[in-house]
């Protein structure tokens, strides 16, 4: 599976992680194009269902990226997001999926480098896990 290119969705909060992603671009720090970002006002807005739906639709990995602990612009949305991600990890475990297919990350607006690093590491991780069962089926359907 060396040429496997995973589909990865990243839900990023407007104030911190999305800005960090912009900064990675501004500084031309490259990270895998597998990562596609969906902007949300706050990671606390990311419903656990969204993570499941992303996997259902064929994402091989999904992560939520919010502000650093204590920096959330809406007090504690990032901690709620963490709880949602943890819940979905448990569900995946019950399903016999690798829980590592979902993750939570934290960046401040200035952490472009770290954003790229996180994207890289997550992509590597998913590559090593291989395609998700759903993406295989979706792939076959096309």
């Amino acid at each position: 599976m060396s040429n496997f290119e995973p589909e990865i969705v990243a839900f990023c909060c407007h104030y911190c992680a999305y800005t960090a992603a912009d900064m990675a671009g501004t500084r031309r720090i490259s990270y895998p194009s597998n990562v596609k970002i969906i902007r949300v006002p706050c990671t606390g807005k990311v419903d656990a269902i969204h993570l499941m739906k992303a996997l259902e639709k064929g994402a091989d990995g999904v992560y939520v990226a919010g502000c650093l602990d204590g920096d959330c612009h809406f007090k504690n949305g990032n901690l709620r997001a963490t709880a949602h991600v943890e819940k979905i990890k448990k569900v995946l475990e019950d399903l016999g999926w690798e829980p590592e297919r979902v993750a939570m990350m934290y960046f401040s607006a200035g952490m472009g480098e770290q954003f790229a690093q996180g994207a890289k590491e997550f992509t590597e991780k998913i590559k090593s896990l291989g395609p998700s069962p759903a993406s295989q089926t979706v792939g076959k359907a096309v």
């Binding site: 992603a21 671009g25 501004t26 031309r28 490259s30 990270y31 194009s33």
Partner: peptide, 18 residues
């Protein structure tokens, strides 16, 4: 721009697909 052209200079084909 910020999250595609600038971030994936190293992989043009994949960047286009994205």
């Amino acid at each position: 721009r910020d999250q595609n052209a600038w971030a994936h200079n190293d992989a043009p084909a994949k960047s286009l697909e994205k």
